[in-house]
């Protein structure tokens, strides 16, 4: 293990294609950039200017955006999606809100109608990818190791293996986490935040960055409402307080209640991502 940052072989992100069973490491220069320069400073200071600088230091203006690299790669992904008329959705939630179950149901119900593929993100295992694959959809699994979110370069690498078809929907299931994924643009068209009624009504207030960054919120597991003290109206009010423009769906991925509105939204947006400019 590296004592500088705690990273180790097992902690590097990996990409698994369940169809071939092949797993490849996604470690990039980004992960170990600091190692390359480990002893660059043990240098020589010969001339007077350097002696002066050695005492007082020289200030260098950088004005560098820390997330610039991720944002640049995300824009590249976004352009790639637009060229291929792919509606890319970044599904974010806390662990256990029902992202994978909602995906399984959506993929099964719309299989004959819409072309969809999936990128699964988890710290470990390809269990979710196996569940998705069982529906017949094409899927690849990213394992982030110790990472708590997907980044644009991981998605770019996954896209090379997945090769989603033109005029389709790409579902990106992010690592279950309501904090970090809000900061890392993947190049998606829409962030879809999923909240389940077994969590608190106040979650949008407690994790405002995520609900502010999302354009769609899905309130899942509403079939459980009779057994819970969960105030749907209060939850929606809290969500709108954080983001008045949120598009909200209340549904149950298990019973199917409320799914029609979600499916209509998908149908509408997959055809609306890029106007058809091809001549007749």
């Amino acid at each position: 293990m590296c004592t500088s940052c705690g990273c180790s072989e097992g902690a590097l992100p990996t990409l698994t294609d369940p169809e071939t069973g092949e797993t490849v490491a996604m470690g990039t220069a980004r992960d170990h950039l600091h190692h390359d320069h480990a002893h660059a400073h043990a240098g020589h200071r010969g001339n007077a200017q350097q002696v002066h600088a050695a005492v007082h230091g020289t200030t260098v203006t950088l004005e560098a955006d820390v997330l610039a690299k991720n944002n640049r790669l995300a824009e590249r992904n976004r352009g790639w999606f637009e060229d291929r008329n792919i509606l890319a959705l970044n599904l974010v939630s806390s662990p256990g809100a029902g992202k994978t179950t909602l995906l399984e149901r959506t993929l099964t119900d719309l299989a004959s109608e819409l072309r969809m593929s999936v990128v699964e993100g988890d710290q470990a295992t390809a269990r979710d990818a196996e569940r998705i694959r069982a529906t017949g959809a094409r899927v690849v699994q990213i394992n982030t190791g110790t990472g708590c979110h997907l980044e644009a370069d991981m998605l770019a690498r996954a896209l090379r293996t997945l090769d989603p078809p033109m005029n389709s929907i790409l579902m990106i299931e992010n690592v279950g986490n309501l904090v970090c994924p809000a900061l890392f643009d993947l190049g998606e068209h829409t962030k879809v935040a999923i909240l389940s009624v077994t969590e608190g009504e106040d979650k949008p207030l407690k994790y405002p960055h995520m609900f502010h960054a999302a354009q769609v919120m899905i309130l899942n597991k509403i079939d459980l409402l009779p057994h819970l003290r969960f105030d749907v109206a209060q939850c929606i009010e809290n969500a709108r307080k954080v983001n008045p423009d949120l598009h909200i769906f209340c549904l149950s991925a298990i019973t199917g209640q409320g799914l029609t509105a979600w499916y209509d939204w998908l149908r509408k947006h997959v055809s609306g991502t890029k106007p058809d400019t091809t001549p007749p």
Partner: peptide, 10 residues
């Protein structure tokens, strides 16, 4: 903002 403003080097 999440920016590196400047650095001072020897």
């Amino acid at each position: 903002e999440l920016r590196i403003k400047e650095m001072e080097v020897y």
